[in-house]
């Protein structure tokens, strides 16, 4: 009996210590969305349960290991105890009860994260190797590689992928949703904390999966509106081939692979590309003139750049005018 009392006390002490330790360790990133509240609430209860169950097993084990260790020279066996049906039933039924409670809580908190606000703003998301493109239908449908969101307003992202599976995840928002080619998946979020975050692609999608991160800016409603209107105006005012080309590079996600400032990403940089000598995989070099760029855009494998894989760049269907605009834009990058 004495053993049970001691172990009981130790279990409680250990459980409390574990919980307090974990709780103060700052396990989760900041809570920046309405949806994360119910997730964190559940997570907290899970930590409670884990601390308790861990202590419940480990403490009596450690206790037995110390107290009931075999003394030197003792070669006898221990007492013959085969089992105890009541005990077995107890430790079947109580966990069953715990588990059902948690499943219920899980369903409840899932429901909370899915709560629909009919006034939610719709944003279209296109995921592709290795960038995200956001389209704002409420503002004339401009494109952006940064996701700006007004604080405290629900948005629903309608997400599509043009190549492989990606996954939209913002750790501070908690929720995660895959983006699957051939279907539209939905992601509902209500940002509650002004700040900048990053959407991090959480499903492996190829070589540069690690770098598939785009900025998210949660800002005051008024700041957001100002930004969005400005983008809308820029788009409407864009008439020159260069600026139209720039928009196309955002829309088609070219800048997910090609940098415009000389940094090396998945693909050759466009900075200073025009007019330069491009070394090809077959050992020859070619001058990056208009014809070469046009060919590379429509059929990038025709002349493979040295050191790059032919399967990386997707095939695009672009009109002649669009290609010309893209080339015009690339020419400006020096």
């Amino acid at each position: 009996m004495r053993h049970f009392v001691v172990v009981g006390i130790l279990v409680i002490v250990m459980a409390v210590l574990t919980y307090v330790g974990l709780d103060s360790a700052g396990l989760m990133p900041v809570e920046a969305s309405a949806q994360s509240v119910s997730i964190d609430w559940l997570w907290n209860w899970q930590i409670v349960a884990i601390s308790f169950l861990f202590a419940l097993i480990v403490v009596p084990m450690a206790y037995s290991m110390v107290i009931f260790r075999r003394r030197k020279g003792d070669i006898t066996d221990a007492e013959h105890v085969e089992g105890n049906t009541t005990l077995e039933i107890t430790w079947t039924v109580i966990p069953l009860f715990i588990v059902l409670t948690f499943a219920y809580m899980g369903a409840y908190s899932l429901g909370e994260t899915r709560r629909v606000d009919p006034n939610a703003m719709v944003i279209k998301v296109k995921a592709q190797q290795f960038t995200w493109t956001f389209e704002y239908p409420e503002y004339g449908g401009f494109f952006s590689n940064e996701l700006h969101l007004p604080v405290d307003r629900q948005v629903v992202l309608k997400m599509e992928s043009s190549d492989v599976i990606h996954s939209f995840w913002v750790p501070e928002f908690r929720v995660k949703q895959d983006v699957v080619p051939g279907r539209v998946t939905e992601y509902r979020i209500t940002p509650t904390l002004i700040g900048s975050y990053k959407v991090r692609c959480a499903e492996i999608c190829g070589t540069s999966h690690s770098y598939m991160e785009n900025a998210i800016i949660v800002e005051d409603e008024s700041v957001f509106t100002a930004w969005a209107s400005e983008q809308e105006t820029i788009m409407l005012a864009s008439q020159t081939p260069e600026s139209l080309g720039k928009i196309l590079t955002v829309k088609n996600g070219c800048v997910g692979c090609h940098s415009i400032d000389g940094t090396q990403l998945t693909a050759p940089t466009w900075f200073g590309l025009y007019g330069s000598d491009v070394p090809l995989a077959d050992g020859t070099t070619v001058v990056a003139d208009d014809a070469y760029l046009a060919e590379s855009i429509l059929n990038s494998t025709a002349k493979l750049v040295e050191g790059f894989s032919p399967t990386t760049m997707p095939a695009y269907t672009l009109t002649d005018v669009e290609v010309a605009n893209l080339i015009a834009y690339i020419k400006t990058l020096k």
Binding site: I57, M65, D77, V81, G83, E88
Partner: peptide, 26 residues
């Protein structure tokens, strides 16, 4: 999925009961 915890738990509790008051060597 959560149901799997139950038979697994049975094992853990039974293991603890097995070494409880045993004569354990290491």
């Amino acid at each position: 999925t959560l149901l799997v915890a139950i038979p697994t738990g049975v094992k853990f509790f039974s293991w603890v009961a097995t070494i409880w008051k045993g004569k354990i060597s290491y």
